[in-house]
Computed example of a mutant assay.
Amino acid sequence: MKISNILVCAIVSILVASCAKKISPIKNKETISQVDQISLLKQQTEINNPYIVDAKNKLIQFVGSKNFDNYIIKHGILNCQGDNNQSSCVLNFYLSEYYKLKYDMQLKKWVEENQAQHDIELNKIKATENNIKNYCQSSADFIEAIYTKDTDKITQYFQPKFKMSAQDILSLQTKVTKDNYSLFLIEENPSILQEMKVDYVEECLNNPKDNIINYFNIFR
């Protein structure tokens, strides 16, 4: 390589390095400048304007205070600078972003709920004769566990089998234990519980929809 070419390359390298050093602090100034602009814009628009403060706080609930300034810069709040009505512009910005995020969250929740319902439907079983017999017997066993206060069996076996929430279980327990007469008979003669189970299964087979516990969440 000729000496002249070497000199040219060296000069170009020096110039590029020099430019890079000059450009870097300019970027930092721009970043700082945006933060200052946001701070000034807030001061100018929030003084004696509770509507803007309220709208901002609503948006913060979704975005979080830590990332708030970065979020509003990214989504264009600085476009309100120089607007003929800065306060109105900022208020509209906050409310638009708030309702957009709220809608997105509601939509996500709706999708999740529908997916959960879809999963429940997929997991339902056919109301075959064998399945009906099985769940009639299990329902009778479930009632027995409530009468005998077998909490472990209720929560570990019957709750998942019958696809019930803790609140569902509590409601069923309350309903069963309200039958004071049956409780009295069982206390006087515990063996009568087996007769009650036989009667329950017989009635259940004749009318499974009303006697199988949580029927409509189990069968298609």
Score class of each variant (00 low, 15 high):
Leu41Gln: 07
Ala55Met: 00
Ile47Trp: 05
Ile218Pro: 10
Val176Gln: 12
Met1Pro: 13
Pro50Cys: 01
Asn48Cys: 01
Ala17His: 02
Glu30Gly: 08
Leu41Asn: 03
Phe62Ser: 08
Phe158Pro: 06
Leu15Thr: 15
Gln117Pro: 13
Asn217Cys: 11
Lys29Met: 05
Lys21Leu: 15
Val90His: 11
Asn92Lys: 07
Asn79Gly: 06
Lys161Pro: 07
Ile23Ser: 07
Lys126Ile: 10
His75Gln: 08
Lys133Pro: 14
Cys80Asn: 07
Lys133Asn: 15
Cys136Asp: 04
Ile132Ala: 04
Leu170Arg: 10
Phe219Leu: 04
Tyr200Leu: 09
Lys109Thr: 08
Asp104Pro: 12
Ile169Trp: 03
Val8Ile: 13
Asn57Gly: 01
Gln34Pro: 09
Gln117Met: 14
Asn206Lys: 12
Thr31Ser: 11
Leu122Lys: 10
Ile192His: 07
Ala116Cys: 10
Asn217Ala: 11
Leu41Asp: 02
Ile154Cys: 03
Asn84Gln: 09
Asn114Glu: 10
Ile32Leu: 09
Tyr157Ile: 04
Thr128Ile: 08
Ile3Ala: 12
Ile32Trp: 02
Lys133His: 13
Trp110Asp: 15
Ile38Trp: 10
Val176Lys: 10
Val201Asn: 05
Gln81Gly: 00
Val12Leu: 15
Thr31Ala: 11
Leu205Tyr: 03
Tyr200Pro: 09
Leu170Tyr: 09
Ser18Lys: 01
Asp152Thr: 12
Asn28Arg: 06
Ala127Glu: 03
Leu15His: 10
Asn5Ile: 11
Lys175His: 13
Thr177Leu: 15
Gln43Lys: 01
Ser39Trp: 04
Gln37Ile: 09
Asn130Arg: 09
Lys56Val: 01
Leu91Met: 02
Gly76Ala: 04
Glu30Met: 05
Ile60Trp: 02
Val201Tyr: 00
Ala166Gln: 06
Ile6Lys: 14
Phe93Asn: 03
Phe158Asp: 04
Asp141Pro: 11
Ile218Ser: 12
Leu7Lys: 15
Ser138Met: 14
Leu170Lys: 10
Ile120Glu: 12
Gln173Ile: 13
Ser88Cys: 07
Leu78Gln: 05
Glu202Ile: 12
Leu91Phe: 06
Ser139Tyr: 00
Lys102Leu: 15
